[in-house]
């Protein structure tokens, strides 16, 4: 059951000039959130702002979200300090299917936050996890880990190139039997999904669209998904409620 909670920020750190990682106290959300889900956070602007859950600490009853400043709403939320509170609706949407034992995670942009939650969850369960993360240049690198394969477009850190160049460094042993989970900008997810198709791997992506309610009642955040029914080209599925996680094979890019 989705609910709206008044939550307090318990800690905050700025990852770079334009991105904050805030920790929020909310046992109700922390106890049941799964990787791939998001929360919709109230700010002074009219609509709430959706953010993917970056981490959960069930014992402490806290979770984290990463906030990249792109406008007034995210700027206000990124400036929240310890002790400040706001209304948060969540956890929302469907998480990733984690029934396989072997995963390759691919992250970019604000997708690095849900990828972090996936990594924590899968590695705590002792599953095989490889991570590839791509950034524009070294100054943009956040939420990175020495175990990850790092790529930058500028080539000033890690492998020069994009996430697919990073994926190409994986061995057949790494790849065989893996499921790819990808969260990032649309062009990146599209490229990774076609890479997965070439390798014959299952691939799931988390789609993003301008959102309002976050709970599936307004139908503004739709994406094109291949229709089940014959004679229909596509279905407009709601990113917030039917997704945000979709099978990449079903997505019409």
């Amino acid at each position: 059951m989705n609910k709206d909670f008044f939550c307090e920020v318990t800690s905050k750190c700025m990852l770079n000039e334009e991105t904050a990682l805030i920790e929020i106290l909310c046992p109700e959300i922390a106890s049941c959130a799964v990787p791939g889900q998001f929360v919709n956070i109230t700010c002074s602007n009219f609509l709430r702002r959706p953010f993917g859950i970056a981490s959960v600490n069930k014992e402490a009853g806290t979770f984290k979200v990463g906030i990249k400043i792109v406008g007034e709403g995210s700027e206000e939320l990124a400036s929240m300090d310890e002790g400040e509170g706001t209304w948060i609706l969540g956890p929302l949407g469907n998480g990733f299917d984690l029934s396989n034992n072997k995963y390759i995670l691919v992250g970019g942009g604000s997708g690095v936050f849900p990828i972090n939650f996936l990594y924590e969850k899968l590695s705590s369960e002792g599953k095989s996890v490889k991570v590839v993360q791509g950034f524009r240049d070294a100054s943009q690198i956040i939420m990175n880990n020495d175990d990850y394969i790092l790529t930058t477009d500028a080539g000033d850190a890690g492998i020069k190139g994009n996430c697919c160049d990073g994926l190409n460094t994986l061995t057949d042993e790494d790849i065989n039997g893996s499921t790819i989970l990808c969260v990032g900008p649309m062009p990146m997810m599209r490229a990774v999904s076609s890479w997965a198709e070439q390798k014959g791997l299952d691939c799931f992506v988390s789609l993003e669209q301008r959102m309002a309610c976050g709970i599936g009642i307004c139908l503004v955040c739709v994406c094109k998904i291949k229709a089940q029914e014959q004679g229909i080209e596509f279905d407009h599925k709601r990113c917030c409620k039917d997704g945000p996680v979709f099978d990449a094979k079903e997505v019409i890019w």
Binding site: F46, A212, C218, C221, K224, H236
Partner: peptide, 23 residues
């Protein structure tokens, strides 16, 4: 009806615009 394609919502001061198009 599939409704309209592309961006369907624009936040405004004290409200919003939608163009769902009767999906």
């Amino acid at each position: 009806r599939a409704g309209n394609e592309g961006v369907r919502v624009a936040e405004c001061k004290a409200g919003m615009l939608n163009s769902v198009g009767l999906q």
